[in-house]
Structure formats: C-alpha cells, structure tokens
Amino acid sequence: MNQETAVRNDRDTTSHLPNNQIKVSARKVQVYYGDTHAIKDVDVDIEDRNVTAFIGPSGCGKSTFLRCINRMNDTIPIARVEGQILIDDEDIYDKRIDPVQLRAKVGMVFQKPNPFPKSIYDNVAYGPKIHGLAKNKSELNDIVEKSLRRAALWNEVKDRLQLPGTGLSGGQQQRLCIARAIATEPEILLMDEPCSALDPIATDQVEELIRELKGNYSVVIVTHSMQQAHRVSQKTAFFHLGNLVEYDDTETIFKNPKDERTESYITGRIG
C-alpha cells in the first residue's frame, strides 16, 4: 500500500498550476546510516517554481531525504544513498557529478541560522566569490544588494553591511542565510526547518519571503508545523518511519488525506 500511494504523482493534480515542469525526480531512494535503513523506497517529483513541504513526525526521515537532494549527506561518512535522483533529467549521484557544482545549483538553508563569523556583506558575497559569479567589485556589490533585497533584508542592514552577521537578530540572521543561499543563483532552494529557531514575528517574515521566492525557485521546505506547511506550500509530502506515505496537493493532504496515517498525523493523533 505504501508503494501505491507513493507512486501517485502530480498527474493527479490537474487543478493546480498545470504548466509546472518537474524539477527534481526521485526514484526508489534508499538511505542507510550504517546499519539503519533511514529512508525506504522514496519516489517523489518536485515541481519547478512551487513550494513543496515535507512534513512528518520527528525522525521520520524528511530532513535526511532533503539532504539527499544536494548531496549534503556526502559529508556524513556513514551515510549511504541508493536509488536515483534526477535534477533536470541528470542523475545527481552519477560519478561525473561534482557535488560542489551541484550545490551551487541547489542551495540550502539550515534549521539554525548559521551566519559565518564575517561581516554581513562577506556572508552574502561568499558564495558568488567562490563560484566566480562576479567579474569585479561593483558586480559583486550588485549581487549582494540584489540578494539582500530578495531576502527582504536590504532595508534593515544597508547601513551596516560591514558589521558582523552574528550581531543580527535571529530572524534577520535566517534571512541573511537565505540571502547568502540565493546569492549563488541556485535553481532549487532546500530549507530544513528554517523557522524552528525563530520567534513568531520572525517566522512570519520568513514565510512571507518563501511565498515570494516561489516565483523564481523550486522551494522544498521541511517543517514540523503543519500550519506552516499549509500556509506556504502548494504540494505536501508526508513522511513516516522512513517511508513517503502520501504526496499530493497541500489542500488535498490537509482536507482529504487518503492514508489513515496521514489523517492521524494531521489530526494530531501521532507525532
């Protein structure tokens, strides 16, 4: 039954944004941490210019799966990934793929804001510098300004770009991290519980930002909060014990879940 629900893909979602292309397509993905089988047989198609939310109880594997999409799991020595993940029809676990190049295309924002111990400017300029996106100083300045504007932070920090990024408030730090991620011009933006360390007001600002970012990126967000998934996403995937239980339009998942586990979770009986 798992298989059955998991295989169901966006062909069902005729009602919503019909012209969206598939950006990421995962088939039979398995992840092992040493002997633990953390992700089992996950098949999912993620659309471009849309927000996809991964929800599920703690330890269900949603973050692990997210980290597969830009191969961040490579940094954990005991982690092993099997199966296929295609981005723009290219298998990112192909031997010829350089994870460094991949991560420039698939940006990531982490659970806790993690600005570098550098100035705000240098934080945002870091990605463009290492990827050589700016020919000269003024281009770099433009990229920094543009990224900070897109992250809705420019007006708050434009007068103190040379101050350390660690001096900002929690919400500002997280938006700085988002600006840092989009400065490298990624096509996909992965967000691992980006609001879990933030207060409600900062959460509001970041959610607003996510809704705006959807116009340009394929955004995948892992969240603990069902309300948040409901507020920001168009598609929602429900993970449970390493399985992708159900994947559908957000409205459908929340109003009319097909799997009883999904329903139990939505109504607060498991989690």
Binding site: M72, T75, L102, R103, G107, M108, F110, G127, I130, C177
Partner: peptide, 14 residues
C-alpha cells in the same frame, strides 16, 4: 560548530 561547515558546504564551497 558543524553548522558553519554545513553552511559553507551547502553553498557549494569545496
């Protein structure tokens, strides 16, 4: 902290 390394690696730094 590992978070700093993750932040940098996540941006595509070697």
């Amino acid at each position: 902290p590992q978070a700093m390394r993750d932040g940098s690696l996540g941006l595509g730094a070697t």
